[in-house]
Amino acid sequence: MRDLIERLYREHTLPPDKLRILLTQCDEEHLTLIRQKACEVSQKHFGNKIYIRGLIEIGNCCHNDCYYCGIRRSNSHIERYRLAKEDILACCEEGYNLGFRTFVMQGGEDNRLTDSRMIDIISTIRKTYPDVAITLSLGEKDTRTYQQFYEAGANRYLLRHETHNEQHYRLLHPSGMSLSNRLRCLNDLKQIGFQTGTGIMVGSPGQTVDHLIEDILFIESFRPQMIGIGPFLPHHETPFSDRPAGRLQQTLLLLSIFRLMHPQALIPSTTALATLLPEGRELGILSGANVVMPNLSPPQQRYKYALYDNKASMGAEAAEGLKLLDDRLKAIGYAIDKSRGDYFEETTI
């Protein structure tokens, strides 16, 4: 096992049979080792700096009905909301004054959020704050829409593929959605010029080691600039309400694997990880993550963006909690970096 970890550290890749061994036989001792190696690589490229992104959850209305998601169309017990343009701009103003230089606008696939409205919001933010990075996480769109978002001033786009296995994808999504379209979207985003992020839920219902190997190999070939992974967390108003959450150890192992395979990728320590365990954010950073996304959304709306139960959105997970976040990062030897933190092409370690 030690030889496999050293090989991954040196070569940034492993064949599928070796990945299987790593995923199935990594005990606590070797998990500690691979996390140390991942931190070593992360610190080589980024020092002890952790990039912060201001997360703005612009609405929880969605026409999709994904079986794992709390804001799915069929959830009739959720209080829906949409932020007005003025509300979004107020979030940006607050974030900019706090030092954020990246805004992440995230929302459901909302038919009432037309392309023209979104383009207007993006272009206004770009004109008002020309030095910031604008990241979108708004789901599947057609090629022309992505192009218009890019031309309006958006720089980055997050779209997790969730699983690269067709059968597993169908288990998690209704028939109107397809893996082929999700992959088409990701390819469009890269070709247009977005810094593109994808990723998976760890421990999602029906996920197997074979699926994880397929995901690792897909991400290796796709070479995203951002890799977002976090544990599956159930929501009580979904078909998967009784499924167990993804395991912490497996999530940390995969974070470390992705850091060793993609030394310069932007890898968040996710809100889901902080929700799974109070110190989850710190554990993610100590496994190779180098991004956190404090919540800039209006406090009275945050509980409504409930992708899963008990989502962490206050304290060190909130933009107004930057001092607390900074203190917690300092306690593990890291510090906030408020710059844009752009991705640069990888060089050999």
Score class of each variant (00 low, 15 high):
residue 112 R to L: 14
residue 199 G to Y: 06
residue 76 S to Y: 08
residue 284 G to W: 11
residue 179 L to I: 11
residue 48 N to L: 02
residue 19 L to F: 05
residue 161 H to F: 05
residue 175 S to N: 08
residue 126 R to F: 03
residue 263 P to K: 04
residue 276 L to M: 09
residue 294 P to C: 10
residue 51 Y to Q: 15
residue 147 Q to R: 15
residue 164 H to W: 03
residue 295 N to Y: 03
residue 161 H to T: 08
residue 228 G to Y: 08
residue 233 L to S: 04
residue 299 P to H: 06
residue 282 E to M: 14
residue 256 S to M: 05
residue 154 A to D: 07
residue 104 V to Y: 05
residue 225 Q to G: 08
residue 33 L to H: 03
residue 141 K to P: 02
residue 214 E to D: 14
residue 193 G to M: 05
residue 318 A to I: 05
residue 37 K to H: 06
residue 227 I to A: 04
residue 237 E to L: 03
residue 198 T to I: 07
residue 314 M to S: 15
residue 230 G to T: 06
residue 213 I to D: 06
residue 68 Y to V: 07
residue 29 E to V: 03
residue 296 L to H: 06
residue 82 R to L: 08
residue 136 L to S: 13
residue 321 G to A: 10
residue 227 I to L: 13
residue 144 R to P: 01
residue 71 I to W: 04
residue 323 K to V: 13
residue 42 S to Y: 01
residue 83 L to V: 04
residue 75 N to K: 01
residue 246 G to F: 06
residue 295 N to R: 08
residue 270 T to K: 11
residue 107 G to P: 06
residue 24 T to W: 01
residue 151 E to C: 03
residue 241 S to W: 05
residue 268 P to Y: 07
residue 213 I to R: 06
residue 42 S to F: 02
residue 191 Q to F: 00
residue 18 K to Y: 07
residue 308 Y to M: 10
residue 312 A to N: 03
residue 193 G to N: 05
residue 26 C to Q: 01
residue 140 E to N: 10
residue 78 I to C: 02
residue 25 Q to F: 01
residue 257 I to K: 03
residue 205 P to M: 02
residue 23 L to K: 04
residue 14 L to D: 03
residue 330 K to D: 13
residue 105 M to P: 03
residue 338 K to D: 08
residue 12 H to C: 02
residue 221 S to Q: 13
residue 61 C to K: 14
residue 175 S to Q: 10
residue 205 P to Y: 05
residue 256 S to P: 06
residue 118 M to S: 02
residue 290 N to E: 10
residue 220 E to Q: 15
residue 95 G to K: 02
residue 89 L to H: 02
residue 90 A to S: 15
residue 312 A to E: 10
residue 103 F to D: 11
residue 24 T to N: 09
residue 169 Y to E: 08
residue 185 C to P: 04
residue 255 L to C: 10
residue 172 L to T: 09
residue 49 K to W: 01
residue 275 T to Y: 07
